[in-house]
Design a protein around this nucleic acid. Structure first.
Length: 547
DNA sequence: TGGGCTTGCGCC
DNA sequence: AAAGGGCGCAAGCCCA
């Protein structure tokens, strides 16, 4: 059964539909929490416009739901998927369901209210009509199974995102503060440089004989370097590393410390860690490829430096799992490349590639694979490509074809049916006024080809990760006889890695679940193809100990 | 003063 | 050591 929830004139309505889509009745709901609590034992699939708009208040009320359809996320998939391109949904003009999600909640919630345009509020979206269009689009698809699986996985991801934000990532302010003090010195007054940052900056200024230098200003820094006889074209660390000068080492040190201070210093701590939990705002489907994004807090860029402050509660563990070499394995599976699958069967895919004789070292295998998936043309990676193509023709042909398709302005599609945005067509080179125009057009075309090349791999890897997490979530419920945050639960997700916060006694059971869920994700995407997705699991007290 | 852009760098 | 894909964020810069 489906229950479609809608807000109509500030009241909540619920419409029941049978699995076949037949209307079973409609009613007003005065107490949403009570209604959901009463219905959930029947395992309905809740259908709503936006999980972030409905689910947090349920969680606050102590209610969890098993499954849902997030109409806005599903709409985005169906709108652009080649599998549903002829559907009424995909051929309709842009409408409210194509609009970006409303302003998201941040710690300073008050500002979000004023960000919403009045017109946005006034527009009434009809979830029942939209759901009906979506079901028709799926039913009429050439491959309903795939797209249906994608919609379910995407929606499960939305539930998980809300739950992870609700639960929060355990974060010890005292440990973070200690770490900052060790590296930067005691917390300074607002706006002042911490002692150790100031000290290393003093050395830089002294050695560059530039007492007024602002090291945070690239142009100022470049000028000072020039005066010292160092010609650099940028102030990027890797370029500075090439230079020989006594100021370089402290300058690099300064950059490191300044980065930590500005990105994950005391200000970050004050803003994002509340009551011992970091609650980032996850944005499922926030990246074109289907990866999640986050908004605020930089959750997907947590430097390894500060992960030591992510500490399990007393009597609990953090069970950290990451999928080993996920993207190359996804490529092997997509291409049904038996050789590459075999290379990964023993565990270390890169070692397997070396063993096959394609390249000499593990580093070469890694850099060559990355080059294949990203479209490297130069450097060591570019040079190794032909050897990889000889050893694994099917896998390499798949990414090459994705790249050529993109260059022609065509759309590419992931395993479950997420399609790339339409590219521009580049055939109009004849209209180019000059050789420079032509080469610019060619470069744009190639850049789009690199994007589509990567899209199929990154996007399918994102689908695998969603299936993995959905399976983890479902299996963890078996260990849960009360409220989910009192039992093992997901607290963090990073593209190909998850963290489960678990009572110590259940850490082993969680490990089993993580492993089984990975196998299930592989089957969901690729059936019985002999491609394995091994995961590395570490049961630790703090996140810094993993990897 | 505020918005939008660039630079640089953290993560996968 | 650094070229190829995807991001978010902070600080400086530039202009209205």
């Amino acid at each position: 059964m489906f229950i479609v929830l809608a807000r109509v004139d500030s009241r909540t309505m619920a419409a029941r539909l049978s699995d076949a889509g037949g209307a079973l009745g409609i009613e007003y709901v005065d107490d949403l929490a009570a209604f959901v609590t009463a219905e959930e034992p029947q395992h309905p699939r809740w259908v709503w416009d936006d999980t972030a708009a409905w689910y947090p208040e349920l969680l606050e009320a102590g209610i969890r739901v098993e499954r849902c359809f997030d109409l806005r996320l599903c709409h985005a998939i169906l709108r652009s998927s080649v599998l549903t391109a002829t559907s009424a949904l995909a051929t309709a003009p842009q409408g409210v369901w194509d609009a970006p999600p409303p302003a998201t909640a941040t710690p300073d919630r008050e500002t979000a209210l004023f960000d919403v345009e009045p017109e946005q509020v006034a527009v009434v979206a009809d979830p029942l009509a939209e759901f009906s269009l979506q079901r028709a689009a799926v039913a009429g698809s050439a491959e309903p199974g795939r797209i249906q699986r994608l919609l379910a996985a995407e929606s499960a991801g939305a539930l998980i995102a809300a739950e992870m934000r609700f639960a929060g990532l355990p974060w010890r302010v005292d440990a973070h503060d200690r770490l900052l003090e060790e590296l930067l010195g005691p917390r300074p007054l607002e706006g002042a440089r911490p002692q150790k940052v100031q000290e290393v900056l003093d050395v830089v200024r002294d050695r560059l004989e530039s007492p007024e230098l602002n090291p945070d200003s690239p142009s100022d820094l470049l000028k000072a370097l020039g005066v010292a006889g160092l010609q650099a074209t940028s102030t990027r660390s890797w370029e500075l590393k090439q230079l020989k000068h006594p100021a370089i080492a402290p300058l690099l040190e300064y950059k490191k410390l300044a980065r930590l201070l500005s990105s994950n210093g005391w200000h970050w701590l004050d803003t994002w860690v509340v009551d011992g939990r970091f609650r980032p705002d996850y944005v499922p489907g926030g990246v074109v490829t289907g990866r999640w994004a986050t908004s605020g807090g930089g959750a997907l860029q947590l430097p390894k430096q500060v992960r030591g402050a992510v500490i399990a509660d007393p009597g609990w563990k953090l069970v950290v799992a990451d999928a080993s070499q996920l993207e190359p394995r996804i490529l092997a599976a997509l291409a049904a490349d038996k050789g590459m699958a075999e290379a990964g069967a023993a565990g270390d895919l890169y070692a397997g590639i070396v063993a096959s004789g394609a390249v000499e070292t593990r580093d070469q295998a890694k850099v060559a694979m990355l080059g294949a998936m990203y479209g490297a043309t130069t450097g060591e990676s570019g040079r190794l490509m032909p050897r990889l193509a000889r050893a694994y023709p099917r896998a390499i042909a798949l990414v090459e074809e994705a790249a050529r398709a993109g260059e022609r302005g065509e759309i590419v599609t992931t395993r479950l049916g997420r399609s790339s945005p339409p590219g521009q067509r580049f055939e109009g080179w004849s209209e180019a006024r000059s050789a420079a125009d032509t080469s610019r057009a060619r470069e744009r075309s190639r850049a789009w080809g690199r994007f589509t090349r990567n899209f199929v791999v990154q996007g399918t890897a994102a689908e695998w990760a969603l299936c993995w997490m959905a399976s983890i979530r479902r299996r963890l419920r078996e260990l849960d006889d009360g409220w989910f945050t009192d039992a093992p639960h997901l607290v963090f997700f990073l593209h190909d890695e998850v963290v489960v916060h678990a009572p110590t006694g259940l850490a082993d059971a969680v490990s089993v679940i993580l492993t089984e869920a990975a196998a299930e994700a592989g089957r969901l995407l690729f059936g019985d193809l002999p491609v394995t997705f091994p995961i590395t699991i570490a049961s630790v007290d703090n996140y810094g100990q993993a990897k």
